[in-house]
Structure formats: structure tokens, C-alpha cells
Amino acid sequence: MPAQGGQHISSPVPLSTNRKGTTVHNASTTPEATETGAAAAIPSSNRWRVVDIVVASVIGVATGLVFLFWNNVGYAWFSAADAVTPGLGGVAVGIWLIGGVLGGLIIRKPGAALYVELLAAIVSALVGNQWGIETIYSGLAQGLGAELVFAAFGYKRFGVLQAVLAGAAAGAAAWTLELFLSGNLQKSAEFLGLYFVTVVLSGAILAGLLGWLVVRALAATGALHRFAAGRDVTERV
């Protein structure tokens, strides 16, 4: 895959400024700039800065609001699919898993995937949804699933592969937890098998791939200029 993919944002004016007058890094094709970007891409510390905490929180809250919407729309799909097909309802699950992927890819710190997904779940639960406390347990499990993938890569690689795997792992974690929380162990093996496949695929695509695309597009807007994820847009593969 070419480094810039379909989102080539390099402009004839490599440097532009945002409204506050702080400079924003636009993707530049000059080799020097790419090198500097690559150097900045390696986080110098695993300690969370204030901006990491606050932006992770903002993403968590925003994702929680998306959940509230999806709890109605996505759940309608989920239940309709569930009623006619065994286990295919899992296709809708991916969106509920996107918090962990976004958190991991943007913040790039240990615990980010877990924190964002958990916070989104708490927001969704406290505002009120059909699952109550289960939501928080689900957030914990799903965030942990994504977190394990980023940890397995030593918090050093944040490409599309890691994103897709994190989404899939979050799906697998969700499936496992539901065996107990929703009493799914009481369902037939055929249902569970199909459900596993759809949940994991949905996680890989709707959370993993979509999350990766969103982060890449966010980086192109300059909004992530305080994060390594926003400074190495030309580095992504």
C-alpha cells in the first residue's frame, strides 16, 4: 500500500497555521519532513500527559454518545437480524467496539484502548440504556480485548493490521463475556458458532478498519497535531 494511500493531503503549501497561530504539520513529501515525522512518531514516554488524558476522555464521551444513538439504531438491526437469522445479529456489534480502537490508535499509551472503551460504556450506562451494569462490564471486556493487541505489539505499532486485530479481539472478548452475561451459554452451539464469526468480523471491519480510516482522516485535519498519531500521517502503512 502506498504510504499516502487515497488520502493524499500534501498541499502545495506545506506549512499552514491554524486559527490560534500555532503551526500545524501538514503532510509533506519532502524527505526531511518525513524523517522528522518518523522520529516524532516514537513516543518518548509511556506516561500519560494531561492532553492524552483529556483527549482520551473527550473521545470516550463522544463515543459514548454514538453508543446512545447506536443503542437504538444498531440494536434494531441487531435484533431484527437476530430474530430472522441465528447469530447474524453480530454484524451490528462492531460499532460498539470502536472506542478501544480509536483510543489505542490516537493516544498510543498503555491503557488507552481500555480507558476510552470503558468511559464510553460508563457514559452510555449512566445516561441509561437497556443493559444497565452489563454495559460497564462489556466496556471493560471489549476494551481489554483491544488493549491486549496493542500490548502484544509493545505499544510501538499502530497500523491497519493492529487496528483490525484490535477490533477483532474486542469482538472475541465481547462474545466471551456474553456467554455469561446474556446467558448465551444456554443457546445452541450452531448459534454460538455463527455469532462468533459475525461478531469478530464486525469488530475487525466496523471497529478496526473503520477506526483506522477515521484516525487517518482525523490526522489529515490537523486536529491530532499534539499527538504522534497526527504527526506521521505520511508514515502510515
Partner: peptide, 16 residues
């Protein structure tokens, strides 16, 4: 015209 390829969100306040 010189900014045609730039992302709208990266523009300065005046340019936006």
C-alpha cells in the same frame, strides 16, 4: 487556488 488540495480543517482562521 494555491490551497486547492489542502484539508479545510487545516486552514488558518482567515482562510477558513
Amino acid at each position: 487556488d494555491h490551497l486547492a488540495g489542502a484539508n479545510p480543517f487545516t486552514l488558518s482562521g482567515g482562510e477558513q
